[in-house]
Amino acid sequence: MDYYFTKEHEWLRLDGQSGLVGITAYAVEQLGDITFVELPRPGREAKQSEVLCAVESVKAASDIYAPVSGRVLAVNEQVESGPEIVNQSPEEEGWLVRIELADPGELRSLMNREQYRDYLEGLS
């Protein structure tokens, strides 16, 4: 399945008209042990690049930006009760939000896995 990435280290996995959103393995490594995820209310309309939710670790809090605009269809309730799942499986089980794409054209502004890998190399 296709993953798209943002410069703020969110990923989007497209799956028809909607997609799952989470944070990348790199982001998780930077944050350390995730202790809490503040999820949005389902039904909320999100705008691309605006704050979608937040994750907290012991010594940091980080805003998660919406990779695309759209309506929040569902949230991963598992991460609410057990945020460690984001550490264990950031790009699979530890997804955060399912979002319905408002404008597929926005995908063009995101990176593919290869581009994201190059981007990470540029950071180090």
Binding site: T35, F36, E56, S57, V58, K59, A60, A61, D63
Partner: peptide, 12 residues
């Protein structure tokens, strides 16, 4: 729960 606090969250 220090991630609520000013020394981490600053203006938020």
């Amino acid at each position: 729960l220090q991630a609520r606090e000013q020394h981490i969250r600053r203006q938020k």
